[in-house]
Design a binder for these strands. Structure first.
Lengths: 334, 334
DNA sequence: ACATTAAATGTAAGCGCTTACATTTATAAC
DNA sequence: GTTATAAATGTAAGCGCTTACATTTAATGT
């Protein structure tokens, strides 16, 4: 691999001049620019961005930490982010934290030591304190799907209380009063919030929240299945089941069918996230829209604006959930 | 951020010694190792891996180029890869090529200039020649889902001809003789192969392949929808539709329903890939399994073995498709 | 006690770039 | 034709590490 030195040699100029034409920075005469360019193509020269990075202290790369690389939720998020950066020729280094504190921390350390200019973090297990401490460091970062009071300007979040509220309210409007709920793991803030919104809607309808109708899942499909099973066997009768995300709803539906329960006639089901496949399952799942791709793009814009000082459309941190009505919830006949 | 210099100062040793304890390489006495470690934690020292990279000419990171970051196909692949590398504390830099020649090429250049020690490439648009040329360079790479004769030992592929064959054979066994086919874009090798397998099965049943029953899609859901529409309006009657992947099958199914066609009673449908949501749609889709996650792990193993000289389980390049029978194909009554 | 050898540590030259500063060359003003 | 000024180019230091080689220190044998 040719180095800048060889190019300068061939072109008959100094290192600095070659560097200048690369970064088409300063004043270089057309003639020399031409010479240098020619030499570069002749040698098939490709700048070594590691070296650039070290010298300039700017890597043109941003770190992206997500919980998982697969699944209908993170895909669109990553994609939104990559697209935004690609347009500005920034590059993304990716890591998965697997909702595990140590792994998340490790990943952050790596991304920082890797000279990322900025970070986009979707972390779940790491403590607020760690992040607040991190914010005092020199690598700027933005948080997706997590709210920390002290860091509020860099938290891109969905109003999950409202989402939980919307889901429950819709089901209540259809006349249901016996509503089971499969939550996410309640140590996660979003799981808490969704449940809080749920309770709020119940309260508005003067309904008490019955703990027996609650099952705590883990946002994965299987826990929807076991959750349904548990509720079916142990809880009082219910005519509707609200799940804190679509994947658990999917699991619950599959299991309900195994119990020969007709959907949606005998049981209404509500999801959350509006993951892409919800409209393909049967019955098509009513759910709450989570504009994750847009939020990913917004996170990228945050970095573009705060780190690279590019002009972007105005930054927005709070996103609104939206009710998506399909066919999995039936009205109770009066 | 503290540098190695400050650590050496604090510990009262030379740069080299600090470097040695970092890479716990050479002979360092326990006493000095202790001193240095203490100094490191005291300063909160974190090695700058950019600098390490430049000096050692090894970045401990591998580049991963996929067509898209989202979708049920790439997610499991990326995940398999990340997991394998994480265990060996290698890191992955990701890029999306979007099936576009220029973007794929750009991405490869970036990954190389970024000093990736090795590359895992899922490319579609770039030419064989380019890749063959690339293989002469110093950055080793492995190809997923693409076969090039000259590079055969580094091509991790599925036997797509066989997959196409299995799908068609199964449908034929159910008594169908009028079978429509929605292919992938035929400039892609895998699309060609699947179709070839399809034709081969037809031939075994002494059936001619009818061009009118073929629609060329692009592997995306929408093209399944328009494909169905086209076939429904222009093609002769058919009792089964085989799609070259699950997403097109999904699109076709949705549209078929809009035409009030009962599935699977009036039309049998067959997919390909066994993407995770196929079992949730209705009717659950019969399809061909594509062990993409395993193939991702294998690609990672290839790099681990060929680049980092780690011992891995034996490398395998050819993977076998498998018929997955669910409920979307019905036997024709005799 | 002294040579011989091995272990521990230090020295300094890069890795391929960027960039402040110095120097040269061209342009303009008189 | 001089200067003054701006534009173009060159020089060299340094980014934070690794590593070949040189040097010092400790361990061993006689």
């Amino acid at each position: 691999m040719a180095t800048i030195y060889e190019v300068s040699k061939l072109a008959g100029v100094s290192l600095a001049t070659v560097s200048r034409v690369m970064n088409n920075n300063a004043n270089v005469s057309d003639a020399t620019r031409e010479k240098v360019t020619r030499a570069m193509t002749e040698l098939g020269y490709r700048p070594n961005s590691i070296a650039q990075s070290l010298a300039s202290n700017c890597s043109n790369s941003v770190g992206l930490l997500v919980s998982e690389l697969q699944g209908p939720f993170y895909g669109p998020m990553m994609s939104g982010i990559e697209t935004a950066f690609r347009k500005q020729s920034k590059h993304v280094i990716i890591a998965a934290g697997h909702s595990d504190e140590e792994r998340e921390q490790q990943a952050i350390e790596f991304l920082i030591s890797r000279n990322c200019d900025g970070l986009i973090l979707h972390v779940e297990a790491i403590s607020d304190d760690y992040l607040i401490e991190l914010s005092k460091g020199k690598t700027p970062f933005v948080l997706i799907n997590r709210y920390i009071e002290e860091l509020s300007s860099r938290c891109i979040i969905l109003d999950n209380v409202k989402g939980g509220y919307l889901a429950a309210k819709y089901v209540l409007e259809q006349g249901h009063t016996d509503i089971a709920y499969i939550s996410g793991p309640l140590w996660k803030k979003d799981a808490q919030d969704r449940l809080a919104g749920h309770k709020q809607a119940l309260a508005e309808y003067n309904l008490n929240f019955n703990e027996q109708l609650l099952y705590q899942g883990d946002f994965m499909e299987d826990s929807g299945a076991t959750g349904f099973q548990h509720l079916h066997n142990n809880a009082p009768q219910f005519t509707a089941l609200i799940c804190a995300n679509d994947e658990m709803a999917t699991g619950a539906m599959a299991t309900a069918r195994e119990y020969k329960i007709k959907l949606p006639e005998q049981l209404s089901i509500m999801g959350y996230d509006n993951v892409f496949f919800t409209r393909h399952i049967s019955p098509p799942l009513s759910t709450i829209n989570y504009p994750i791709s847009a939020m990913g793009r917004m996170a990228a814009d945050w970095v573009l604006s705060n780190v690279y000082h590019k002009n972007t459309s105005p930054l927005q941190t709070l996103f609104e959930p939206e009710l998506i009505i399909r066919q999995s919830v039936l009205a109770i006949p009066q």
